[in-house]
Amino acid sequence: MVKPGDGYKDIPKGGLILEAGNAKNYKTGGWRTKKPILDKETCINCHRCWAFCPDSSVLSEDGDVKAEIDYDHCKGCGICAHECPVNAIEMEKE
C-alpha cells in the first residue's frame, strides 16, 4: 500500500492503484452526525436497508441482516431507518 510521504521511486508508475478495494481502509464513519441503531428484535430481515445503503454499511451474513452495521463507513444518511418497513432502525445523535 502506498503510504503518505512516499517518494516517486517507491510508488507504482502512472498512478495505478494495485490493491483493489483498499478504500475499506479509509474510514468515513466520522462524517456521521446521527447513528443508525438496529433493533434486532423488531427486524424482519427484509434486507431493504441492506439494498439501499449507499455505503455498503449494512452488513449481511448468510442472508441474515441482523449481523451488524459497519460504523467505520456508515455516513449516517438515514436511508436505512427511513425505508425500514417496521421501524427497526432508529437514528440516534452521535
Binding site: K13, G14, A20
Partner: peptide, 23 residues
C-alpha cells in the same frame, strides 16, 4: 490482481507521478 487506472491524484502524489514521467 485487479487494478485501478486513472484515479483522482491530488496534491500529495500527482507531482511524484509526473516526476516518474520526467525520469
Amino acid at each position: 490482481d485487479p487494478i485501478a487506472v486513472g484515479p483522482l491524484d491530488l496534491q500529495d502524489f500527482y507531482f511524484e507521478h509526473k516526476m516518474q514521467q520526467a525520469v
